[in-house]
């Protein structure tokens, strides 16, 4: 039933590393208001946060959509960045194309995508080099 779906939309600013994660903080707050369990909220928050960071450091920002149904939380992160040439490689722990300036900010350890997979029940990456990337993740409630 579409009426059972709660939706939140966010613009993720690609120019401002310091504001990255603001959407995830907001999602956390809203899910808490909806009475979702702390464990589910934490998994959603971490996956979304890593995805948001990726959009900022690799893709110049994008859009995040979070949908809450009675069964699951679904996150859709869409960007029009460079895309990912080899998804299997990108999914490997420790693989990163992030430069030293990003590492000095505490990210770029190549753990983001593996983390997102680890903390969610499903994750799907739709990407095309030169067009952009859309990551869809769900967490069962």
């Amino acid at each position: 039933m579409p009426d059972d779906v709660v939706r939140f939309c966010f613009d993720v600013d690609g120019d401002d590393f310091s504001s990255a994660g603001a959407a995830s903080v907001e999602v956390k707050k809203r899910l808490r208001q909806l009475g979702i369990s702390p464990e589910v909220i934490r998994r959603v928050a971490i996956a979304m946060y890593e995805g948001e960071i990726n959009m900022v450091i690799h893709a110049d920002g994008g859009k995040a959509l979070v949908e809450v149904t009675p069964d699951e939380v679904r996150m859709t992160l869409e960007d029009h960045g460079p895309g990912i040439a080899d998804v299997e490689l990108a999914m490997q722990e420790g693989y990163s194309t992030a430069r030293e300036n990003i590492r000095s900010l505490g990210f770029g350890a190549g753990m983001g995508l593996p983390n997102m997979k680890k903390y969610t029940d499903t994750m799907h990456i739709d990407t095309e080099v030169g067009r952009g990337t859309t990551v869809v993740m769900t967490v069962k409630i």
């Binding site: 903080v25 956390k28 928050a45 960071i53 505490g106 350890a109």
Partner: peptide, 30 residues
């Protein structure tokens, strides 16, 4: 490394770090 905190930490309540930027706070919050 905030990515490591997000990857390996479970239920730790205190973070010690030498990194200073807003992502440290957001990571701890997550």
């Amino acid at each position: 490394m905030m990515s490591d905190v997000l990857a390996f930490v479970k239920d730790q309540a205190v973070l010690l770090t030498g990194l200073v930027n807003p992502q440290v706070i957001r990571t701890a919050e997550m």
